[in-house]
Design a protein around this nucleic acid. Structure first.
Lengths: 113, 113
DNA sequence: TTACTATATAACGATATAGTGATATAGTCA
DNA sequence: TGACTATATCACTATATCGTTATATAGTAA
């Protein structure tokens, strides 16, 4: 298979994975969750967002297999089950920090002129 | 800083990074590029996409610092400068493969019943 | 039963952005 | 100069999806 030939459905699959994390509110939810279990109400409080909105994002994350859901009476408890999420965020954050460092250096150099 | 308190602008920055990769056509471009330099026409041929579309995606990738641009006469040559992109794709692909394996196993188990 | 609570979902408007055709721009060559 | 080529950009349509309000659903408790 040439580099140029890659299955479109595979590309869509990968893209959809990135699309999951391309939303600040979903990142906020995942960050709030960390490695602990939280119910919807707690996530609403932690994020300051609308309950319907949180439920919708959780449904999306659940559908994608990023979180699991455990029903307990009226409460729905969510937990991150896909640790690779955090690895992805680490790579992105490292890259962003490095990029900012480079910009800082460039500015410092210009200032000397 | 509590887990729940994270700067919204930081979240937006991280999300925008993932948004870059949340588009199949951009993934296709990056995959075609790999570690070689290609001009727009070559990328149009490699992806089978519209020239205007490729140029727009390249502008987005350039603005984000993922690729660099080297003008040579009429040609514009692009090259991936942000290797972390490939690390991200690796993580995602590994995760997707694992997820498919799990589904396969689950199906095999059910079939035995 | 009724009242209450937690969560999910439907419906909607607003916004963002992908893809496309037409055109502008700039370099090359006769 | 004029014709041609490669790329960028404009204007537009179509589509996706976020956030919100209202409502449905299901469990709890009196």
């Amino acid at each position: 298979m040439k580099r140029s030939e890659i299955d479109d459905s595979a590309l869509e699959l990968i893209a959809s994975r990135f699309r999951l994390l391309a939303e600040p509110m979903r990142l906020k939810i995942l960050h709030a969750l960390g490695d602990v279990e939280m119910n919807v109400g707690e996530l609403v409080a932690a994020t300051g967002a609308n309950q319907a909105n949180i439920s919708k994002h959780l449904a999306i994350l659940l559908e994608a297999g990023v979180v699991s859901r455990r029903k307990d009476g009226l409460r729905a408890n969510y937990r991150v089950t896909d640790e690779s999420i955090f690895a992805l965020c680490d790579v992105v954050c490292s890259r962003l920090e490095r990029q900012l460092d480079l910009h800082r250096e460039a500015l410092a150099t210009i200032r000397q002129i």
